[in-house]
Amino acid sequence: MLEISRITQIFGGVTALEDVSFAVKKGNITGVIGPNGAGKTTLFNIITGIYTQTSGTVFLEGKDISGLPPEKLARKGLVRTFQNIELFGQMTVRENVMVGMHTKSSCGMLSCALKTPWSVSEEHRIREGAVRWLEFAGITDLADVTSGNLPFGKGRLLEIARALAVEPTIMLMDEPAAGLNSQETLALGLLIKQIRDMGITVVLVEHDMELVMDICDRIVVLNLGRKLAEGTPREIQENTEVIAAYLGEDD
């Protein structure tokens, strides 16, 4: 599905990522973990076209997607959520999701501006469609709230709903549980599993180990810019190198 091949990223004199490779299987939840500064977010920024890597390639379904800008990636079915949620703060919750469905709209600027009957029904169809994603994320009751006024946890759910509205095949989530309380985190875990069950591949960077161990099918561990280990949650938990990286070595 998604293949990271020998990615190296150098910022000035700092090597943020060194020769990192791994593959994400279709329909899996893959967690990328590692101590602070391991290069997790850098990796996400490379995959989603925000940084251009020094060397290496990213493949999506066998096609080289390295360096494509975010909007092209979204059209290819790859979306992302941010650690600090990024919403259209002055729009309502519903409008945020509708904008997410923008790529699915076939209505050009002219017919929209001229408000042809066809574009009205298009708008109507999208409005209806948006409700479906709001229901999925459990925020239907907030549909008409200005998204800038949402509490953080709800904002996160909205960001996820908006990403889903793009109808992605793969979704990258950067620390989805950051800033959530334990109850919200629990609900988030269930939601992510539901997303996977819809056939959407999920890759997430996360610090909440309980969540990662609970929902991930595979885990990739980064440390100091290198891949330290890869495996199932159980394998990772028993991996001595990983334990050493997290807890520090004894000597």
Binding site: T48, P69, P70, E71, A74, R75, V79, R80, F82, E86, L87, F88, G89, Q90, M91, E95, N96, M98, V99, G100, M101, H102, T103, S105, C107, G108, M109, C112, A113, K115, S119, E122, E123, I126, R162, A163, A165, V166
Partner: peptide, 23 residues
């Protein structure tokens, strides 16, 4: 009231997020 116009407003509010949803 049109999806194209909403997309334009979205760009004004948050350009990065707009790119991420394929605008």
């Amino acid at each position: 009231h049109t999806i194209s116009g909403k997309a334009m407003r979205a760009c004004a509010y948050n350009r990065r997020a707009a790119g991420l949803v394929g605008i």
